[in-house]
Design a protein around this nucleic acid. Structure first.
Length: 469
RNA sequence: GCCAGGGUAGCUCAAUGGUGGAGCACAGCAUUCAUAACGCUGCGGUUGUGGGUUCGAUCCCCACCCCUGGUACCA
């Protein structure tokens, strides 16, 4: 691999992102930072952003008596702030209302149309405005949407443009079967294969609202949000404006997204790309959801926590560490503030923080040479490239333990001979520098602080990295 | 109902057809370079239930129960 293009899901602007979304951004950030080290900064592109069109945004704006544009700007800005407080190192924060995105979507529409995969048809069905989707009668629960039981289902009949999804059914099934790395984790692929069997053509335009990208040559219709949103991955690397950049980074190496978005990414998106004659992404990485204290994160439960709330109390790297170490990326995990605190004291304060503090203090008596530049071990690389972030952190914390043991055995505070003391501490500091290097993708701020403190030749103790709470 | 994943120490998770492992938490010892921190020792489990195969099963097979996810549909 000589380049790495990673994207996250773009978040819909009905509300500011919470810890569940943040978890996915952090995972993406780890990969981006890792590949920036191994492949070089210029060869990595990391895209994230917000999904802003659609009926829900239009309606929400009307309720607040502001324009849709004002509303989506507000939420998009606050999403971006949430990501910034987590140190998410995106190269571009895309908004689907960006002008270059509009142009890209129109271009893809035209290509798909030229390939005869768009046709006009009449659609009649039960429509849920919450889902922005049609339901069959059978899908409804007591006449209401299973996801939004409080909303009225509307019978809508309209002239729409349809995408010939069925044309790609066999292709999709073959692609998923022939590319075991296409969907990760694997069992998600089975789900998609099941669904693919029953693919039907879907309407990809809407005529009953206006907050969207107009259909080329038919301004009465706007393009369906999913059709528009997926294309952001092309816009992100300047599909239209910058051929060189696009050709360098496309196809995307990893699309990371929540399990709720899998169907669109695994089945609709590849069909769209195939139709437009564009290469398919390599890996779709599906992340699980977070529960808080055993409960789903939801507004109605009232347990929504925004990243900035925990970051404000405990710091960016604490939140990153806790989520990366004590959750499963691909399964649902349960988190709590209590467990975060436990992880903070046990691992960050007593473990990493204390090790750094004790060694820095010991080093005040000696002058050391700069440590050699570390490299990632094969084991480290394998685990991180397989998305097993908790395993990598376990490797690192084991190294911390070993260093602590070695210090206890060597008892440098008792060593009188300056030469021998220097020798012992040199090897300890080399170990710490190595740990800092390995921490870079995970705890960038902390890694940088440690590197700065131990770059020599004079090392002095500084402020605690993680004071006990 | 069907498909997939899972059920191992209080918690988070490893492991293997041959007397069950780690970290956290808890208790004790020791120690002071360090953030009442580090280290060492200990406590802690009929590996969801019941059968079967085997000299031997936590691992393989069968049935069942529970959890998670996906999905179908008819009365």
């Amino acid at each position: 691999m000589n380049k790495f293009y990673i994207t996250t899901a773009i978040d819909y602007v009905n509300d500011t992102i919470h810890l569940g979304h943040a978890f996915q951004k952090i995972a993406a950030d780890v990969l981006a930072r890792y590949y920036r080290i191994t492949l070089d900064k210029d060869n990595v592109f990391f895209l994230t952003g917000t999904d802003e069109y659609g009926q829900k945004a239009e309606k929400a704006a009307r309720l607040q008596n502001i324009t849709p544009a004002e509303l989506v700007k507000k939420i998009s800005d606050s999403d971006q702030k949430e990501q910034d407080c987590l140190n998410i190192s995106y190269d571009r924060f895309i908004r689907t209302t960006d002008s270059d995105h509009t142009e890209t979507v129109k271009e893809i529409w035209k290509r798909v149309q030229e390939n005869k995969d768009i046709y006009s048809g009449e659609y009649q069905g039960s429509y849920c405005e919450g889902c922005e989707a049609y339901y069959t009668k059978e899908d409804l629960v007591k006449g209401k949407c299973p996801v939004h039981p409080t909303l009225e289902i509307k019978m809508i009949k309209e002239q729409n443009y349809f995408f010939k999804w069925t044309k790609y059914k066999d292709f999709l099934i073959e692609h998923i079967k022939n590319n075991p790395d296409f969907i990760f984790p694997k069992h998600r692929a089975n789900e998609m294969l099941e669904f693919a069997k029953n693919i039907k053509d879907i309407p990809i335009s809407r005529g009953n609202f206006i907050w969207g990208i107009p259909v080329p040559n038919d301004p009465k219709q706007v393009i369906y949000v999913w059709f528009d949103a997926l294309i952001n991955y092309l816009t992100g690397v300047e599909f239209l404006e910058n051929k060189k950049l696009f050709e360098k980074f496309w196809p995307a190496d990893v699309h990371i997204l929540g399990k709720d978005n899998l169907r669109w990414h695994a089945l609709l998106w590849p069909a769209m790309l195939k139709s437009a004659n564009i290469a398919l992404p390599k890996t779709i990485l599906v992340n699980g959801f977070l529960n808080i204290n055993g409960q789903k994160i939801s507004k109605s439960v009232g347990n929504v926590i925004h990243p900035s709330q925990w970051v404000g109390k405990y710091g960016t790297d604490t939140v990153r560490y806790y989520l990366l170490r004590y959750t499963n990326l691909t399964d649902d995990s349960d988190i709590s503030e209590e467990k975060l605190l436990q992880a903070y004291n046990a691992d960050l304060a007593n473990g990493l923080g204390n090790l750094v503090a004790r060694v820095a203090k010991l080093c005040e008596k000696v002058t050391l040479k700069p440590s050699p530049i570390p490299v990632f071990s094969e084991n480290y690389k394998k685990e991180i490239e397989d998305f097993k972030f908790n395993e990598v952190l376990e490797i690192i914390w084991n190294e911390i333990r070993i260093l602590d043991q070695q210090i206890n055995t060597a008892e440098p505070w008792k060593i009188k001979d300056q030469k021998k003391l220097t020798q012992v501490l040199q090897s300890t500091v080399d170990g710490i520098v190595c740990i800092a290097y390995e921490l870079k993708p995970f705890l960038p701020e902390t890694a940088e602080k440690i590197e700065e403190q131990f770059k020599g030749p004079k090392i002095t103790s500084g402020k605690s990295l993680f004071p006990r709470i």
